[in-house]
C-alpha cells in the first residue's frame, strides 16, 4: 500500500490554495464527541446474537425440513404403483376399437330393432374410457331413431395434364445505326 500522503500539490498556485481551503472546509469536523456513547447505547439496545435467540429460526427450518422429507417419502411411495399400472395398461388403441374409418357395428348390436346403418364419425374419447367403460345400454321400450348419414358426394379430381411447351426464341433483326450527320 502506498504511503504517499495526500492531496496537496507541492507548490500550490493561488487557485490551488483556494480550492484546497474550500475542500478542507467541506470535509472539516471531528464528528460528534459523544459518538462513542451513542454507538454504545445502540449496541446495548441490540442484543448480541446468541444461539438461544436462534431457536425460532431453527425450529422453523426443522419444520420445513420435516415437511419436505415427508413429501419426498410420499412421492416415492406413490411413484412405483403408478409405474406398475402404466406397464400393465394396454397400449392405447389395442383393446379399444380400431381407429380405422370402417363403420363399427355397435349401434346394431345394442339396439336390435334398429336397422344397421353406417356409424357416424364420432368424437375421439380418451383411451381409458374406451378400455374400461361399457357403452350405456338403451332403456327397455325406448326406440332410438337411427341417425342417418347421407354419403358425401365428392367428385373425383380430374387428371388433367399440364403441358409445358418449350419457349420459342424469335430472331431479332437489328439494323445498324445510321452515321451521324454533321
Amino acid at each position: 500500500m502506498s504511503e504517499t500522503r495526500g492531496p496537496r500539490p507541492p507548490a500550490p498556485s493561488p487557485l490551488d490554495a483556494a480550492i484546497d481551503a474550500v475542500l478542507h472546509d467541506m470535509v472539516a469536523g471531528e464528528g460528534p464527541a459523544d459518538l462513542h456513547r451513542r454507538v454504545a447505547a445502540r449496541l446495548a439496545e441490540r442484543p448480541s446474537p446468541s444461539p438461544w435467540r436462534a431457536w425460532p429460526v431453527l425450529a422453523a427450518a426443522a419444520g420445513i425440513a420435516v415437511v419436505a422429507a415427508s413429501l419426498v417419502l410420499v412421492r416415492r411411495a406413490s411413484t412405483p404403483a403408478r409405474s406398475v399400472t402404466s406397464v400393465h395398461e394396454p397400449p392405447v388403441g389395442s383393446v379399444a376399437e380400431p381407429r380405422t374409418a370402417a363403420p363399427a357395428p355397435t349401434v346394431q348390436a345394442r339396439a336390435e330393432s334398429v336397422p344397421p346403418v353406417p356409424a357416424p364419425p364420432r368424437a375421439r374419447r380418451p383411451a381409458r374410457m374406451r378400455a374400461s367403460e361399457p357403452a350405456p345400454e338403451p332403456a327397455d321400450g325406448v326406440e332410438v331413431a337411427p341417425i342417418e348419414v347421407s354419403p358425401l358426394d365428392v367428385a373425383a379430381m380430374g387428371d388433367e395434364r399440364v403441358v409445358l411447351r418449350p419457349l420459342r426464341i424469335e430472331r431479332m433483326d437489328i439494323e445498324p445505326l445510321a452515321e451521324p450527320q454533321p
Partner: peptide, 17 residues
C-alpha cells in the same frame, strides 16, 4: 475522490481501496 483526499485522513492507497 477529491473530497476524500481533502479529508487528509488516508493515503492514496487506502482511499483507492
Amino acid at each position: 475522490p477529491l473530497l476524500l483526499c481533502a479529508a487528509g485522513e488516508q493515503t492514496y492507497g487506502e482511499i483507492a481501496v
